[in-house]
């Protein structure tokens, strides 16, 4: 029914080269206004990306907007976004998947939600869907309507659907913001596994403890700008270079 995704691969179709390649994201002069307020201003960032990058910062820093911009869901007022040297396009977006803070699920069964994104024959898609559900611990709820799942289960289903598109880049917009600790850890584990097998992950969070658990590199944003980019996460948490980041990590309110 839907157009073939160039990067789609089902469970068992292993692509070893993907795990060895890195993805670069180059952003320069990015600006975005909402009404009279400039929410992203002259943002520049250069990430050579091989693992799990966390974008963190206080509420209103522009993290979620930045994620939508680099995924091409919002067009910037000015600036450029290049993935592996290529400007953002539908073709590049097909190789990415995004999980939103509030899961957006179809009014179908959990399994059908995953089958929806699998460009495979019905029987193969069905088997693959069950395997993806199994990865997030929802195989026993395959036939259950997606809307009857709990908040944590919905988000795990949303994550399984994103992974089912076999994305090269997985973008996560505070996926655990409304989840309990157990569900949060499950989501973190699934994403870390995906990262370990070659999926580049960009995870937006304002939870510093979560960032410490999962981040391989950190981008700290504040007031619509990148304040600090630490290619090694531990240096950011131990010795933040900017006063703003130090205040944020110390739990002080930024205003």
């Amino acid at each position: 029914m839907f157009k073939a995704r160039p990067s789609i691969r089902l469970v068992g179709d292993v692509d070893d080269t993907a795990a060895q390649q890195s993805t670069t994201l180059e952003v320069s002069g990015l600006c975005l206004s909402r009404g009279s307020k400039q929410v992203i201003s002259d943002l520049g960032l250069n990430i050579r990306h091989t693992g799990l990058a966390v974008i963190m910062g206080p509420n209103g820093a522009g993290k979620s907007l930045f994620l939508r911009l680099i995924h091409g869901l919002i067009q910037p007022d000015a600036g450029t976004i290049r993935w592996n040297g290529q400007p953002m396009s539908d073709r590049i977006r097909l190789r990415q998947a995004m999980v939103f803070q509030k899961p957006v699920l179809l009014r179908r069964s959990a399994r059908a939600n995953i089958e929806f994104v699998l460009g495979a024959p019905r029987l193969r898609a069905r088997h693959a869907a069950i395997e993806f559900l199994d990865r997030v611990g929802l195989a026993d709820k395959a036939a259950q309507p997606a809307h009857s799942l709990s908040g944590g289960e919905k988000q795990r289903l949303s994550l399984a659907r994103a992974l089912a598109t076999a994305p090269e880049v997985l973008l996560l917009d505070e996926p655990t913001a409304n989840l309990d600790p157990a569900s949060t850890l499950t989501v973190e584990k699934v994403v870390q596994n995906a990262s370990a097998t070659g999926t580049r992950v960009v995870w937006v969070t304002h939870d510093r403890f979560q960032a410490e658990r999962i981040a391989e590199q950190v981008v700290f944003m504040d007031r619509g700008k990148v304040v600090e980019h630490a290619p090694a996460a531990h240096t950011f948490f131990e010795r933040p270079a900017s006063a703003r980041a130090a205040s944020y990590l110390a739990g002080k309110i930024l205003c």
Binding site: F2, K3, R68, H71, L73, L94, M98, F100, V104
Partner: peptide, 15 residues
């Protein structure tokens, strides 16, 4: 409700 999700999946207008 579905706009962002469908655009994220790069669905065509017909889809």
């Amino acid at each position: 409700e579905y706009d962002e999700q469908f655009r994220s999946l790069s669905l065509t207008s017909r889809e």
